[in-house]
Simulated scan of single mutants.
Amino acid sequence: MFIDLLRHNKNVSILLAVLRVYLGYTWVMAGWGKIASGQFDASGFLQGALANATGEHPAVQGWWVVFLENVAIPNVEIFNTLVPWGEFLVGIGLLVGCFTKTAVFFGLAMNFAYLFSGTTSTNPQLVLLSMFILVSAINAGRYGVDGMIMPTLKEKLFATKTINGKEAAEV
């Protein structure tokens, strides 16, 4: 019942649009701050995550340490580009409501990467709010670019035509 409300109610889509814009603004500001400074370096954050992997109750789990040591740290220059631009592009997608589900999915992936690395900050809040956007499907983008292009796209993808008196989906 609640999920149907999130997915189909036009009044709820207004609330979801406000939520989507808030999340988008948060991501844009985080990404743009890193891009504009031109001095973002994930090395310290990654080393801090490794430091949080020790002790009796480590904040960073061993499997994530393996990822950090074998993928992230050796390729820190790639992550120095991916992180700020990923945050910025997720934010733009959410702000304008374009490919909303895709944007929120990648936002969640980044939030969980930060959480796995032992930091909390605003990440739990962003994860919780993002789940509403993700579950709401197309309704979160109704008042955005998705609301303008998806009906046309759906119409073109699922157009039917009659062949020998029978309807057939046009591919």
Rank of each mutant, 00 (worst) to 15 (best):
Q61C: 02
G97E: 07
F79S: 05
L134Q: 04
V71I: 15
S117K: 03
G48C: 03
I138M: 12
A169F: 14
G33Q: 01
S130A: 11
I92N: 09
F79K: 06
G48I: 03
L115I: 01
M1S: 15
F132R: 05
A137H: 13
Y22S: 09
I163R: 05
L115F: 00
Y22T: 09
T102R: 07
L82Y: 08
G91F: 00
K34I: 12
T152A: 12
V18G: 14
L19D: 07
T81F: 13
N123A: 02
M29R: 13
T162P: 07
T120I: 14
F2C: 08
F45K: 04
Y25H: 13
T162I: 12
K10E: 14
V18S: 11
A137Q: 10
V18T: 15
P84F: 05
V21Y: 01
N123Y: 08
M1H: 12
V104P: 04
E69N: 11
L126R: 08
K154F: 14
A53Y: 05
V96Q: 07
A36P: 09
N9V: 10
G55R: 04
G91D: 00
T100H: 07
A53H: 00
D146G: 06
F2A: 14
N80I: 03
G62I: 09
V60T: 02
E170C: 06
G144A: 05
V76C: 07
L129N: 00
L94V: 03
V96L: 03
T119N: 00
S43F: 07
G33C: 10
V60C: 02
S117N: 02
V71M: 12
F132D: 00
E167I: 01
M150Q: 10
A159H: 11
G55L: 05
E69L: 01
G48P: 07
A17I: 06
G165V: 08
